[in-house]
Design a protein around this nucleic acid. Sequence first.
DNA 1: TCCAATGACTTTAACCTTAAAGTAAGGTGG
DNA 2: CCACCTTACTTTAAGGTTAAAGTCATTGGA
Lengths: 347, 347
Amino acid sequence: MTKSETVNKAQRRGTLTLKDVALVAGVTPMTVSNVLNGRDSQVGAKTRERVRAAIEQLGYRPHAAARQLRSQRTNALGMLVLDDVPQFLNDPFTTQVVAGLSNVATENDYSVVLQGVRSDNMLDAPLLAQLRTDGVCAILSGPRDRRRALIERLINLRVPLVLVQEAYDHADVCTVRQDDHRGASQIAEYLVAQGARRMMFLRPAERWPAMSERIRGTQNVCDRHGASLTIVACGDESLAATQAAVAEAIDAEGLPDAIVGGNDRMAMAALKLLAQRGIKVPDDLRVTGFNSFDFAAYAVPSLVTVRSDAYAMGYRAGAELLRTIETGAFSTRDIVLPVSFVPGQSA
Amino acid sequence: MTKSETVNKAQRRGTLTLKDVALVAGVTPMTVSNVLNGRDSQVGAKTRERVRAAIEQLGYRPHAAARQLRSQRTNALGMLVLDDVPQFLNDPFTTQVVAGLSNVATENDYSVVLQGVRSDNMLDAPLLAQLRTDGVCAILSGPRDRRRALIERLINLRVPLVLVQEAYDHADVCTVRQDDHRGASQIAEYLVAQGARRMMFLRPAERWPAMSERIRGTQNVCDRHGASLTIVACGDESLAATQAAVAEAIDAEGLPDAIVGGNDRMAMAALKLLAQRGIKVPDDLRVTGFNSFDFAAYAVPSLVTVRSDAYAMGYRAGAELLRTIETGAFSTRDIVLPVSFVPGQSA
DNA sequence: TCCAATGACTTTAACCTTAAAGTAAGGTGG
DNA sequence: CCACCTTACTTTAAGGTTAAAGTCATTGGA
């Protein structure tokens, strides 16, 4: 193949290889490889420039599969998702985590592999083999013991691992989470300052670390100020389940001074129920949310809530994961990102 | 390597290869490859069973990169995203399209590559080279001429292509979209039946095919029934922009009988503005949405809207794309998925 | 002046899979 | 009983990249 043929190839959809670039630059493919991988000591300055020019001219990009095959590194970060992927993608919080992860990945020439893990065959040998990534970033859901089992499994395999929104006190795990405790305290302090003494906390039936932190944060403040706190489990935290749970609690115990939503979704369900019953918010009853997403602003009245930066969590998790992969040193940091209080009309 | 060593390998994280399986099954790697790829005529029934057992026992999975390199097929579907990926992932509609696409892909042993295309360098040679997928599924946004240019580009390259939510009358493109026209008609007919005669349609400033269809559908019904229709542009369709636009329109023209939201987001912004002004919905004014997502149910009062199945759109688009890739015959179908009317208290 | 060290490359082989061509055993028809 | 076809495999080579080892001028030091 001559030079001009090679140049021509760029226009068509045929694969352009190191060989093509090498031909144009007048060197061997290995030299081009060295330039591409920044092994500067191996290549003279003039040659380097010539190679760069050829790469630019042809619009050459390395063939990821070939690279992976040879180097035995996938340049991919795995995003482990327990349960259903469509459901996962439906949650504005988790998708922003993915967005953050995906962005660090791209910046570092990595890609992201979304891998769903079904409950039954969780992370058996075939799946593990399929999960050929350099490291794994996991957001977990589901029962605590299943989560534990999965984490132990990954640690034993010595897969570089970063957990998102999961507290885990093991030597070799890095966790990235948000300051749920502080966020919950801020909300509770605010409510107390507004005069609330009887609070009702809405939580999903499923137990998970971030929610426990929020409950603890709220409880602490209540204890300190002599306020009461009733915890109401709202099933799968759907609109219907939450409304039913809140209705039952209110009917049984009467109106509290404030309903503290474990998240915005449940808070908005409560808002809707109260509107239907003609209970005025915040005059008759204050309502707060947690983990604000875009649509919380559409609530009437707009929610007093806490905003966390899911994108930043994904980004930090990815950065930490990359550091672990590149250095080989397993990070054991517990990174806690700040949250911010969002004022509103609901409390 | 002996058999037992090979079996051992499965426990560790070392890569398991065809050779390992072959050793256990007592055949050559090629035979294993034939079994894996369903070339049944090449392998005897007994051998096939032995190989299957070995694969199972070891938990072997093919090495995707090696496969790609050899077969020159990536087994990946590209999801082309104009503009920002985090923003894209923030939209419940588009993420469900991704979920659907991702599921067909997985079912057919394909993976999905999310590829953002920035406005500036849109799809230049390097990006195209990087986009090494067997086919492309695109959801487009941004100005019409940029979209056109990108589509033409892909068609010229003869990349198998499926467009989502984009009308395009070219011989070689397959489009998957929803019946926006019919959905809009249903909403408008409903409003007319409720006695509405003066309607106000909320649309974003940016022009795109699906929204135009909704406007046409609404306009047709209004024309047929002698109802008036004012079109209000709501900037970037954010809460603030929409509220400002609606406030201005109402102040200038007085209250219409109904506000027809081009989508749920704008409808909910209107609902909030009306609540703040003490205007009763639906008594004083009816409000409808479009393209329902989960949170529309949280609106007070709950939105009359139209539900489309974004997941199904992604799924159909992926299926069509796979057919195109496998058969090599470019589909030119224009697939229109049905939408369904969602009753509510807002109209 | 000659050897060793250095710099700037090139050569070779391997990563794992698969298309294509090869082979050997068993069967069939004339 | 031999040519010819099947059937059921095996062998070979290639796909694009890169680690490691090899080559060959220069340069610097003794």
